[in-house]
Nucleic acid binder design. Sequence first.
DNA 1: GAGATTACTTGACATCCTCAACGATCGAGG
DNA 2: CCTCGATCGTTGAGGATGTCAAGTAATCTC
Lengths: 155, 155
Amino acid sequence: MTQSAPRPAAAPTPVELMDQLARAAAAYYRCFATVAAERGLTLMQGKMLSLLRTPMPMRTLADLLACDASNVTGIVDRLEARGLVRREVAAADRRVKNVLLTEQGEQTVRLIRAELISGLAGLDQLDAEDRSALRRLLGQVFPEPAATTTAAAAR
Amino acid sequence: MTQSAPRPAAAPTPVELMDQLARAAAAYYRCFATVAAERGLTLMQGKMLSLLRTPMPMRTLADLLACDASNVTGIVDRLEARGLVRREVAAADRRVKNVLLTEQGEQTVRLIRAELISGLAGLDQLDAEDRSALRRLLGQVFPEPAATTTAAAAR
DNA sequence: GAGATTACTTGACATCCTCAACGATCGAGG
DNA sequence: CCTCGATCGTTGAGGATGTCAAGTAATCTC
């Protein structure tokens, strides 16, 4: 644990960290929104596309995005109109509509992710130990919901 | 350092961390939105109130929130209508409108912050060393803009 | 003093968001 | 098999957010 650097100040309080997390979250979304806008997508459209790395029901999208089903309908409508996603009735339950990326949608997601990782240049500057520590610490502050299923988590 | 748990796997890649950051940011905003909604505020209204711990010009709000000035006008209008903020012409430049929290607005911000820190229970479980590490790591991934002025950073 | 720039506001229009209601579908229970 | 309650996605009303363009007032520069 390379932690020999003299501590410049006292350890931050939880409140100070809360503020820093706020700034970090805002910075993350600023970066994401910029990347999405370069593809003519709004923040929400970009978020939804990124969630769809595996097909999923609209209900699930609404849960992950913490918004109402009718809102998801609107967003999917607009993405569908642009040829980025399509709806598909689930075989096991005809009420359920799965949303899938089209080829174009997958390409768009790939490009967004590539640009996003570029925009988070600071990540590349972390060594393996730092990255492990960050994963652990973030995992403690934001525990993953009892591992339900999806690898594509909320974003 | 209570870290006797066996290291489960190799260090995460930057891409894996990017995804975790996305999930963390989403979780943070879910928490924040819930707290704001309990006060009858939308996410943006809550964000703006939280930024206003010191008075600032609308131009500054637009910069921090990364949105258009006209959008800020609308949000301030609605907050002003609810008695949470007020506008004040700056003495040095009559074009400039500073936005200030009212007493009621300050109270609201205090309550929001108190509830938010409660909702981020994981922060309290970090010891001082972890908190310092998290501060350092977040600071590397999301460098603060060349320290301009405000303590109330973007949120 | 004139023209350029800045700060905020207004307005049009698109998108997002919640809530309520609806029709189609499913599943449990009798 | 039938009924009823629950679920899923959609529609629609109305409010909030967001961009862009244009306008007015104030300030700055030459």
